[in-house]
Design a protein around this nucleic acid. Structure first.
Lengths: 200, 200, 200, 200
DNA sequence: GATGAATGAGACTTCATTCAT
DNA sequence: TATGAATGAAGTCTCATTCAT
C-alpha cells in the first residue's frame, strides 16, 4: 500500500468520525442514520462499512476518543500549574474535565454517562495512541508519593470518575439535583472523603 | 365510561408494560420493535399507540417503576430487621438493592445506569402511587434523628444512589473494575466516607 | 321518533358536515381523516358511520350543497337587480358565482373543478330541498322569452358552467392562464359567443 | 456513473411510471398504494422513493406525459391530413384527442379533468422532451396565418382545451349531459363560436 | 479502495371500521 | 342513538447492507 493511499484512507475514516461525532452530539443515536453520517462526511455509503461495523461501533470509538481527550487536556493543564497537594491535584483534574463539559454540553450529551467506559474499557482504545496514556498508573504513583495508600487505587479512581461523570451529566444538562456550579462543592467534598480514606 | 371498560384498559396497558419489560431486559432497546412488544403482549399494534408515544416512552415508565420497586422492597426488608445505626441502615438499603440486581441481572441490563433517573425524575412517577414513597424525606428525617447534619440531604442521597447504580452496573454485568462481591467493600467504604461528613 | 331526537340527529349531522367542509377547504382530501372530522365536529367516531359511508360520501354531499348555495345566492342577487338583457343576466349570474369564489378561495379549493358535478348530478341532491331549485328550467324559460332558441338548453348551460368553473379554479387559485380579474373579459366574451348561437 | 447504470436507472423509472399508469387508470388514486405500484413494476419498495416523493408526484408526472402524448398524436394525424381551414384544423385536433380518449376510457378515468393542467403546467414537463412541443406557439402562428387575431391566443386555446377536457370527461364516462357522440356537435359549435371572435 | 443504485425487510404509524356498552 | 376503545390490515417510508462497476 502506498503512502498516499494510507493517508487517503485515514482521511475518509477521520471524516466519518468527525461527522458522526457532530450528529451524535446533536441528536439521540437512534435518530442518526448511517446515511446521515456518510452524507455529512461526504463519502459514499459503502465506504462506511469499510471502516465500521455499524453506527454503534463508531459511537464506541468516539466515546473512547472523547473521554481520553478530556483527561489529556486536564492533565496538560495540571502540569502547567504548580499544584502540589495530592487531593488538590485530583480535584483539579476532575474540575478541568467538568469545565470542558460545561463549555461543551453537546459533547456531554453525546457521552451520556459513559465517561468511565470510554476511559477504562481498553478494547476500544485501539484507535488511540496507546503508550500516550495510562491514567491509573499515574494516579497510583502520585498517591504513593503523597503517602496515600490504597489497596486497589484503580478502583478508587474508577469510583471517582464514575461519580463525577454520572452526576455531572445530570447537573449540567438537567440542572439536577442542582445546577453544576451549586453542585460542585458537594461533589468535591464527596471526592475528598473518598480519597482521604487512604491517608495515613 | 363503564367499569368493565376501565378495567380492560388497565389490563391492556399492564400487558404492554410487562411485555416491554421482558424484551428490554433481554435485548438492547434498538433491537426491540413495537411489533415485538405488541406480539408478546397479545394486543393489536394500534393499541400500543393508544397508551404510549413510542418505545422510548414505555421504557421511561418502566425505568421509573423498576427503580421504585427496588427501593420499596429494600425498605420493607429494612423495616423487618432491627438495624439501628444510621450508616448501617443506608448501607443495608443499598445492599438490598444490589442483591436484587445481582439476582436479576436482566433487570439491571434494562435499567442500565438510570437507577437514579427512575427514582428522582418526578415527571415519570405519575403512574406510581405517590404518597407511598418519599425516599428523600425519609433519608433526611433519619439523618437528623441520628445527629447527622447535611445542608442538602437530597444531594447526598443522590450521589450515593448514582455512585452505587453506575458502578454496580459495571461490576455485576462486566465484572469491572472488579466482580461485585469483591467490589462491595470499596463501594461501602466510599459511601460511608460520604455519609460521615455529616457526623458531628 | 320524538321531535327532540330528530333535531338532535340533525344537529350531529350538521356538525359533521360543517367540520368536514372546513377541513376539506384547508387540506387535500387524502390528508383529512375521519378522525379529524369527528374530532372537529365534537362527536364520537362511531357516529360518523351512522350518517355517511366514508369521507368521500360526505365530500360529495358537500359539493352539491356548496354548488347550489353559490347559485342560489347569485339568483337572489339577480332578482334584486333590474337586468333585462338575457346575455347580461347569464353573465351576471356567472359573475356573482365567481365573486363568491374569489372572496372565498378555500371553498374553491374544496370544490376543485366539480362545480357542475355538484349542480347537475341529481343523485346527490337528496340532502337538498328539491323543489327549491331548477336551474336548467329557469335558463330554458328565460332563453325562450328572450327569443334565444337552443335545441338543448341544458347542454348550453352545462358547457358554460363547466367552462367557467374549470377555468376560474385555475385563474383564482393559480392565477393561470391569467389572474382572475384579467381573465374575466376573455371568459365573458367566450360565454357570450356560446350564447349568441341561439340568437335569431 | 457508468453508462449501464444510467440505462438501468431509466428502465426502473419507466417500469414504475408504466405500472402506476395502469393502476391509476383502473382505480381511484386513494385505493392504489405504493406497494401495488412497485409490485406491478417488479422493483423494490425503496426504489420507488428514489424516484418519486409519493404517489401523488408520480401521478402528476403521468398526467403531464399523457396530456402531451394525446396532443402529439393528434398533431401527427393533422399533419398527415390536408386540412386547410383554421377552425377545421383546431376542431380536428380536438376531435383526435377525443377519439383517443373514447377508445381509451381508462386513460380518461386517470386524467380526470386535468387535461389542461398536464398540458400547460410547465413545471412538470421536465421529464418531457422540451423542444418537441409548443402547442401555444403553434396555435398562435396558425391563427395569425389564417387572419385570426387574438389578443392572448394562449388564453383562447386554454379555454378550448379546458372546455373540451372537462365536458368530455363527463360525456364519455358518465354520458352526461349527453353521450359523447351526441354531445360533439354542441361542443364543436361552442368551440367554433369562441374561435370566430378572432375572425376579421 | 471507493462508489452509490438497488434492495427488501420491516419499522413505525394511521385509519377505517367494528362492537360491546 | 351514541359512544370510543380496540382492532389489525395496510399504508408510508427508512435503513442497513450488498454488489456491480
Amino acid at each position: 500500500m502506498k503512502h498516499k493511499v494510507i493517508e487517503n484512507k485515514k482521511q475518509k475514516e477521520q471524516s466519518l468520525l468527525q461527522a458522526a461525532f457532530e450528529l451524535f452530539s446533536q441528536q439521540e443515536i437512534h435518530t442518526v442514520s448511517v446515511s446521515d453520517i456518510v452524507q455529512k462526511a461526504g463519502v459514499a455509503k459503502g465506504t462506511f462499512y469499510l471502516y465500521f461495523k455499524d453506527k454503534y461501533e463508531i459511537r464506541d470509538v468516539l466515546i473512547a476518543r472523547q473521554a481520553h481527550s478530556l483527561f489529556d487536556f486536564a492533565i496538560q493543564e495540571l502540569e502547567s500549574n504548580d499544584i502540589r497537594d495530592f487531593e488538590d491535584r485530583v480535584i483539579f483534574i476532575i474540575n478541568q474535565v467538568i469545565l470542558q463539559l460545561q463549555s461543551n454540553p453537546s459533547t456531554l450529551n453525546f457521552l451520556q454517562k459513559n465517561l468511565s467506559v470510554g476511559l477504562f474499557q481498553t478494547t476500544l482504545n485501539q484507535a488511540i495512541d496507546k503508550d500516550s496514556f495510562d491514567l491509573v498508573q499515574r494516579f497510583s504513583q502520585e498517591a504513593k508519593k503523597a503517602n496515600f495508600h490504597y489497596e486497589k487505587p484503580g478502583v478508587i479512581l474508577y469510583m471517582i470518575v464514575e461519580l463525577a461523570g454520572s452526576t455531572c451529566y445530570d447537573a449540567i444538562l438537567r440542572k439536577r439535583p442542582l445546577p453544576m456550579e451549586e453542585y460542585k462543592p458537594y461533589l468535591f467534598d464527596a471526592i475528598r472523603s473518598i480519597l482521604s480514606k487512604g491517608k495515613e
